[in-house]
């Protein structure tokens, strides 16, 4: 017999209340594709599991009047892929989420879980950072918002206060000539963890890059927003010199680990290569002539 409890509240207030009352022993359950693996491995032993999938706001996708999107933290990759508009406006964010695991994993895995799991290699996180997504969190003291890049704190750690729940991602409206892309380097084509992941979002106006953001995964203790790379792209026509400078900025930002998937030298080099390829895809999608 175990003394573990399971709750599936229908409102956020109930979920936050239960989460707070459990004082640190509770875990949020979204798709469970990280949590159940960790529970089974004995890495986490929650006293209370709070399933958030019965809360409407956590599982809905809303296109706002201004053309932005609000994506519930527990929306699965499969559900997001079926949205008629989301993937057209944010193809890079969608492909980053759809790269997570297998068809089976896609049926459950969420962007909220990917971010809250705190892995430096979480695939959707660089793309969400590049997209300038804002997260809404709710806790015992009410709601607050912060940029995605403020959430990761270190491997397996995030900057949410006790009993705070990630509610949704808000993606801004897109000016004409905007698009995004995400690429990851893995040794096989499916079912592996990124050696490097790169998300780029940009806007082109008459062939000139007027806005850009770059997110880089699996090369440091947290996913990084690489502002120096974005700066190198903005104001350019994405010519070789500008893209090379952005690639160099990505390599310079790397503080990777050496492991069986990739050495420090390899990851650092691949970060620059991936940046160039990702910029190319995003620019083509944005309608580069």
């Amino acid at each position: 017999m175990t003394d573990i409890q399971y709750l599936a509240p229908h409102t956020l207030d109930e979920a936050v209340g239960a989460f707070a009352a459990a004082a640190g022993t509770a875990r949020i359950l979204a798709g469970g594709t990280d949590l159940l693996v960790q529970m089974r491995a004995g890495m986490v032993r929650p006293g209370l599991i709070v399933d958030i999938k019965k809360i409407a706001e956590m599982t809905s996708i809303e296109e706002t009047a201004d053309g932005g999107f609000v994506v519930g933290a527990a929306v699965s990759g499969a559900v997001l892929a079926e949205h008629p508009r989301f993937g057209k406006v944010w193809p890079g964010v969608l492909e980053s989420i759809n790269l997570i695991g297998s068809t089976q994993v896609q049926g459950r895995a969420s962007a909220g879980g990917n971010l809250c799991n705190g892995s430096p290699a979480g695939d959707s996180v660089p793309a969400m950072m590049a997209a300038d997504a804002i997260v809404t969190v709710q806790g015992p003291n009410g709601r607050r918002q912060m940029p995605v890049e403020a959430v990761p704190a270190g491997p397996g750690r995030i900057n949410l206060a006790p009993a705070e729940i990630l509610v949704s991602f808000t993606l801004p409206p897109r000016p004409p000539g905007s698009s995004d892309a995400y690429l990851r380097m893995i040794p096989r084509t499916e079912m592996d963890i990124a050696v490097v992941g790169c998300g780029v979002s940009l806007t082109l106006t008459n062939g000139v890059c007027t806005a850009a953001r770059v997110g880089l995964g699996a090369v440091a203790p947290t996913v990084l927003l690489v502002e120096a790379a974005a700066k190198a792209l903005i104001g350019s026509k994405l010519d070789t010199a500008a893209v090379d400078a952005a690639a160099a900025a990505c390599s310079a930002a790397c503080r990777p680990i050496d492991d069986k998937r990739g050495t420090i030298v390899y990851r650092t080099k691949v970060a620059g290569v991936l940046l160039k390829r990702t910029v190319g895809i995003a620019a083509d999608r944005a309608g580069r002539a």
């Binding site: 399971y6 798709g31 599991i49 399933d51 699965s76 068809t103 089976q104 049926g107 459950r108």
Partner: peptide, 9 residues
Amino acid sequence: RLVCSCLML
């Protein structure tokens, strides 16, 4: 939806 029953409570 296709899911892994080992990853579902």
